[in-house]
Simulated scan of single mutants.
Amino acid sequence: MTEWKLFADLAERAGDKHVTVDASAGDTVGDALEELLAGRPDLDERVRDDDGELRSQINVLRNGTNVLVEEDGLETELEADDELALFPPVSGG
C-alpha cells in the first residue's frame, strides 16, 4: 500500500489530504496515480486532460522529488516506504 498526500484543491476533490492506494514496491508512480484517480472523476478531470495526459501544471513528487523532471517520469518504480505527493500549480502573491 502506498499513501498519496494531496494539496489544495486536489485534496478537496479527492475528499481527503491523505489517500492510500493499492500500489507497492515494483509498481510505478503511474500505477499508483491510476489507483488514486480510479473512482474519483473530479480529481481525474483536474489532473488529466481530455486525452488522458497529465496536465502540465500538475506536479508529481516521490520523496520530495518531482518525478516528471528528475526521474523516469510516471515510469519511476516505487520502493518500500516511498512518499508520494500531488501538487496543483503554485502561485505567489
Rank of each mutant, 00 (worst) to 15 (best):
L84Y: 07
A32Y: 12
D72T: 01
K5V: 15
L68K: 09
E75M: 05
R55T: 05
S24R: 14
H18N: 11
V21W: 15
G30L: 11
L33M: 11
S24G: 12
G73V: 04
R62C: 11
I58G: 07
E75H: 05
D82V: 07
A23W: 08
N63R: 05
V47R: 03
V90K: 00
G92E: 02
V60P: 10
E83T: 10
G64H: 11
T2A: 12
N63E: 06
A38K: 09
Q57V: 03
K17F: 14
N66V: 04
V60I: 15
L84V: 10
D51V: 11
V67H: 08
A11G: 05
T2Y: 14
N59P: 12
W4N: 00
T65Q: 13
D50I: 08
E3I: 13
E35S: 04
G64F: 09
A32V: 08
L74P: 11
W4Q: 00
R55Y: 08
E53N: 03
L36I: 05
F87Q: 00
V67D: 04
E53G: 03
D81P: 11
E45H: 11
V21R: 06
D16Y: 10
F87H: 06
L61Y: 12
E45C: 02
F87K: 00
G52R: 01
R46H: 14
F87V: 00
A80W: 08
E3F: 06
F87N: 01
V90G: 02
E53Q: 01
R40C: 05
L6F: 15
L54V: 07
G26Y: 06
K5P: 14
R55I: 01
D27E: 09
A14C: 05
E79L: 01
F87S: 01
L36S: 05
R55L: 01
T28F: 09
D9Q: 08
D16R: 05
A38M: 06
A14P: 11
R13L: 14
V21T: 13
R55N: 02
S24C: 10
V19G: 03
A11P: 10
V67K: 03
D42G: 02
L86F: 15
S24W: 13
R13D: 04
Q57R: 01
L84C: 02
I58K: 02
G15K: 04
A14Y: 15
E12Y: 15
